Amino acid sequence: MSADPYGFDTLAIHAGQDPDPRTGAVVPPIYQTSTYAQDAVGSPRLGYEYSRSGNPTRDALQECLAAIEGGRRGLAFASGLAAEDTLLRTVCRPGDHVVIPGDAYGGTYRLFAKVAENWGLAWTAVPLDDLDAVRAAFRPGHTRMIWAETPTNPLLNVCDIAALAQLAHEYDAMLAVDNTFASPYLQQPLTLGADVVIHSTTKYLGGHSDVVGGALVTATDGLGDELAFHQNAMGGVNGPFDAWLTLRGIKTLGVRMDRHCDNAERIAAYLGSHRAVSEVLYPGLESHPGHETAAKQMKRYGGMISFRAAGGPEQAVAICNKTKLFVLAESLGGVESLIEHPGQMTHLSAAGSALEVPADLVRLSVGIETLDDLLADLAQALG
Rank of each mutant, 00 (worst) to 15 (best):
M298I: 05
V255T: 15
L247T: 01
L227H: 10
I250T: 06
Y301T: 00
A294Y: 03
G254N: 10
F229D: 12
N232T: 12
P342C: 06
R259Q: 11
E226N: 00
L328P: 04
G236C: 05
I319K: 10
A243T: 07
R259C: 00
G206I: 08
G302K: 12
M234D: 07
F326N: 00
Q315P: 12
S273A: 14
L253I: 07
V280K: 05
Q297H: 05
Q315K: 03
P283A: 01
M234F: 15
L338P: 01
D262I: 11
L247A: 09
A243D: 07
L338M: 11
A309L: 01
Q315C: 03
D262P: 02
G224E: 07
D210Q: 06
A243Y: 01
R275L: 00
L227G: 04
A215N: 11
V335L: 08
L325A: 05
A219V: 10
T246F: 09
G249T: 05
L328Y: 04
R308C: 06
I267D: 02
L332P: 03
E330T: 15
P289A: 12
D242W: 00
G302F: 13
I305D: 02
E336H: 13
N263T: 11
E292F: 11
P283F: 06
T246Y: 05
V212M: 03
E314C: 08
G224Y: 04
K251G: 03
E265Q: 13
N238Q: 11
E226T: 02
L285Q: 07
A269Q: 11
K324C: 10
N238A: 09
S209C: 06
Y301D: 01
H288K: 13
G235C: 10
L281T: 06
F326I: 07
K322M: 10
G311V: 12
V217S: 02
G239Q: 14
D221E: 15
P313E: 14
D225C: 01
G213Q: 02
A243W: 00
L332M: 15
S278F: 01
G334F: 14
L245Y: 01
V327W: 03
G236D: 11
R275Y: 01
G290T: 03
V212N: 00
C261V: 14
S209E: 04
A215Q: 09
